[in-house]
């Protein structure tokens, strides 16, 4: 395996250490510098995130008292400097609410699109998508809305998506399609109350359907052929 004896190998190794110590020291120094830099960077990010957090709180207050000007200023600031934090997306969701309430639907569409494109949280994106579909439906863009509501991995949001699809289909005039979607939403387990079953029942009965839930004790309905 080797043509050098142990003694020669040892000598060679010592020689190599003499040649290479500078790299070892350099590596350690680089490492320490890197560690310092990493910590510095982290501290800076923490401070920035805390600042963004405070702006976000202020934004909630501003929109809460209907001071949209101040709210939008804060939102622009968050979008500009703190894009890597969760706050611009959440701020934008809140802005969309205020815009819908002011009937500025185009602005709300832009706000919700921003969330869909920029949120760092897939579920926040999905929430924005659902709301965007509803605003588009309000604008009469039913097909665009329905396209948005096709989501491959809806997960636990599936019944909410179905409920909204039902609303859009009904607005479009497809009563049977709407009823199917409502029934699908109603058939999903709902322990955590993620859909409003009472409201769904109203929608289902409104379309002549019968909700699957059992009726209260002692109440039965005799249906006669008419």
């Amino acid at each position: 395996m080797s043509d050098l004896n142990e003694q020669e190998q040892w000598e060679l190794a010592k020689q190599k250490v003499r040649e290479l110590w500078i790299y070892v020291v350099g590596g350690v120094a680089l490492g320490l510098a890197g560690l310092y830099g990493w910590n510095w960077w982290n501290d800076r990010r923490e401070t920035q995130a805390e600042t963004a957090s405070a702006r976000y709180e202020e934004l909630i207050q501003a929109f809460g008292r209907n001071d949209a000007t101040r709210g939008m200023t804060l939102l622009d600031d968050l979008k500009g400097q703190y894009a890597w934090t969760p706050y611009p997306a959440l701020g934008s969701l809140i802005a969309a609410r205020v815009q819908v309430e002011a009937n500025e639907l185009d602005k709300a569409v832009a706000s919700l699109k921003f969330v869909m494109d920029n949120a760092h949280d897939d579920e926040i994106k999905l929430i924005a998508r659902l709301r965007l579909a509803r605003v588009l439906a309000e604008q009469g863009k039913h097909d665009e809305a329905l396209a948005l509501l096709k989501v491959e991995e809806a997960g636990e949001f599936a019944p909410r998506l179905a409920d909204t699809r039902g609303d859009v289909l009904l607005a479009k005039g497809d009563r049977d399609g709407a009823l199917r979607e409502y029934q699908a939403a109603r058939a999903t387990p709902n322990e955590d109350g993620r859909v409003d079953f009472d409201m769904l029942d109203l929608k289902i009965r409104d379309l002549g359907g019968t909700p699957p839930a059992s009726l209260p004790d002692g109440v039965t309905i005799t249906t006669e052929e008419s």
Binding site: S53, I60, L90, G91, L93, I94, V100, R131, E138, L202
Partner: peptide
């Protein structure tokens, strides 16, 4: 609470939706 506010306090119903739900209820 910040997350809850972002999701909860941002919810809205459009005018059309309000009208329809009100008609139902």
């Amino acid at each position: 609470n910040q997350l809850q506010q972002g999701i909860g306090a941002s919810f809205f119903l459009t005018r059309g939706e309000q009208q329809r739900l009100s008609n139902l209820e």
